[in-house]
Every structure is written in C-alpha cells, then in structure tokens.
C-alpha cells in the first residue's frame, strides 16, 4: 500500500512503512477467523490518524525497532522481521505499551472485526444493552447473617 498520504501525521514515510509492517505482524489477517490485519488500509489509516498524544511514544518505539533490526526493519525478510517485531513487542516499556494501544484501540473498533466477533459495530449510546437481572435468591444466604459492623458508639444496635 502507499503510505505517502500519511506524511502529515507526524511520522516520516519511512516510519509509516515500518509501522505498517509491524502492524501486519502484530495483528495479522486471518482467513480462519475472517478478519483483516492491523495493516489493512482502513484500519491502518485509523491507527495513523489516531496517534495523537502517542505520536512521540510511537516514534520512540519505532526507533527501538530499528535498533533491534539493525537498521531498515521494512527491508528485512519475513522471518527476520517477525523476530524483530516480537522482540520489540515483548518489551515492558511505556513506549511499547503506547504502540500496542494505538494499534489495538483502532483494530477492535473496525466494523469488520466487530462483526467477525459477533458484535454490533456501534457506539454504546443511545441503544445501550440488555442485561439479565440475575437470580436474587442467591442473596438469601447472606440476608440471614447477623450484623457484621462494629459500632463503638453503640448508637445503631
């Protein structure tokens, strides 16, 4: 895919290529589950357009990825790129957490992904949701307990 149209988002075109390849490895398309990957054009556009507060963190993470890859991550063969991506995503660092968050928050609102999960792709409001009332007879065992609270002032017992 062309990534040139995202160049106004705060990432360079090279960074966008790296992020796109990383997204494809992190959350790959799956025929088995009927879902696109996070590098899907629509989803990736959402990711890039939603970087916002996380832009610097993502840049930092991509810098770490280049360090792991020994240079050009986008140019690595598939297996080496996957190994580098997994090494990066396995790190416990704020920038990596931010990178994961920006991918997942967009992936799991895509209408195709939601439908594949059996979810209606819509905001919670105004329709809301149905909720089963539950079995209140379960509370009978608790109702019969004596008072549990301590009252030094002895004004309530």
């Amino acid at each position: 895919m062309s990534t040139g149209e995202y160049s106004s988002t705060g990432l360079t075109r090279a960074e966008l290529r790296e992020l796109n390849r990383l997204a494809a490895i992190a959350v790959p398309a799956s025929a088995e589950y009927g879902v696109p990957g996070a590098d899907d054009a629509v989803i990736f556009a959402d990711i890039v357009g939603s970087l916002g507060r996380d832009t610097n963190a993502v840049r930092e993470a991509l810098g770490l990825l280049r360090d792991i890859a020994g240079g050009d991550f986008a140019g690595l063969d598939r297996a080496t790129a996957a190994a580098a991506a997994m090494a990066l995503l396995g790190r416990d660092e704020p920038a990596i957490a931010a990178l994961g968050r920006v991918m997942l928050q967009c992936y799991y609102r895509d209408h195709r992904v939601m439908r594949a999960l059996g979810r209606e792709p819509r905001p919670p409001y105004p329709k809301g949701h149905d909720l089963e009332p539950g079995d209140w007879s379960l509370l009978d065992a608790v109702r019969s307990r004596p008072p549990m609270w301590r009252d030094r002032d002895q004004r309530g017992k």
């Binding site: 939603s50 928050q105 609102r109 792709p121 905001p123």
Partner: peptide, 8 residues
C-alpha cells in the same frame, strides 16, 4: 459513549 472511539 456517543462514538465508536469510546474505548480509545
């Protein structure tokens, strides 16, 4: 909760 980006 008005929008699809409610979790983000």
């Amino acid at each position: 909760s008005n929008g699809r980006d409610w979790e983000a």
